[in-house]
Simulated assay, not measured.
Amino acid sequence: MSGATAITGAQIFDGDLWHDEASLLMEDGKIVGIVHERDIPLSATMISMDGARIVPGFVDLQVNGGGGVLLNEKPDVDGIRTICAAHARYGTTALLPTLITDTPEMTRRTIDAGIAAHRAAVPGFLGLHLEGPHLSIARKGAHDPALIRPMEPADLEQTVAARADLDALMMTVAPENVTNEQISALAGAGVTVSLGHSDSGYATVAGAVAAGARLVTHLYNAMSPLGHREPGMVGAALDIGMLHPGLIADGFHVNPVSIRVALRAKKGPGRIFLVTDAMSPLGTQMTHFHLNGRTIYRRDGKLTLADGTLAGADIDMLSCVRVMHEKVGVDLEEALRMASLYPAEAIGMTGRKGRLTHGHDADFVILDNDLSIIQTWIAGNEAYRAGTDD
Rank of each mutant, 00 (worst) to 15 (best):
P225C: 03
A146H: 09
P75F: 09
E345P: 06
I47Q: 12
I7L: 15
T309K: 06
L128K: 05
D16Q: 15
T82C: 09
L318G: 07
G246F: 10
F125C: 05
P153H: 06
D155N: 08
Q182T: 02
F273N: 08
I248Y: 08
P150Y: 00
G251E: 05
Q62H: 14
G348M: 06
R271Y: 06
L332C: 04
T295P: 02
M1W: 02
R294M: 08
L130Y: 04
L95T: 11
A168W: 03
G188T: 04
G301K: 04
G301E: 06
Q285T: 15
T357K: 15
G212E: 03
H218W: 11
A222P: 03
A116G: 07
D165M: 05
R271P: 03
E105I: 07
V330P: 02
I347F: 07
A116L: 13
T82I: 13
M286I: 03
D78H: 14
A335P: 04
I315T: 15
V55T: 12
T204N: 02
E345N: 05
E21H: 14
E230Y: 02
L356H: 08
I315Q: 03
G127C: 08
A206T: 00
V173K: 05
A362V: 09
L282Q: 06
L70D: 15
P56W: 09
D361C: 10
H87S: 11
G51N: 04
P153I: 04
V254N: 02
V191E: 01
H358E: 14
P56A: 11
T8L: 01
L99W: 13
T110R: 08
V173Y: 01
T110Q: 04
P104K: 01
M338G: 05
D300C: 03
L341R: 13
G57N: 12
L166P: 05
M242Y: 11
G354V: 11
D199P: 00
A85K: 13
E326Q: 15
M106N: 15
P123V: 15
S43R: 14
D165I: 00
T376F: 06
A10T: 00
F13L: 04
T92Q: 12
I296F: 05
T192Q: 10
V323I: 13
T287H: 12
S258I: 00
F125T: 10
A44P: 01
L70S: 14
T103S: 14
P123R: 12
I183K: 01
H358L: 11
I347P: 04
Q62E: 12
I183P: 00
L126F: 13
S340Y: 06
H118C: 14
N72D: 12
S280E: 14
D316G: 14
G65Q: 09
I111K: 02
G293E: 07
V257T: 10
D199L: 02
L95F: 13
E157N: 11
N381I: 03
N64Y: 09
G293R: 05
C320N: 12
G348Q: 11
F289L: 04
T276F: 09
Y90H: 15
M170L: 15
A187R: 04
M1R: 09
R38V: 13
G114E: 10
A22M: 11
G91H: 08
D307H: 08
E157G: 03
V59K: 10
C84T: 12
R149C: 01
K353M: 13
V63M: 10
H244P: 02
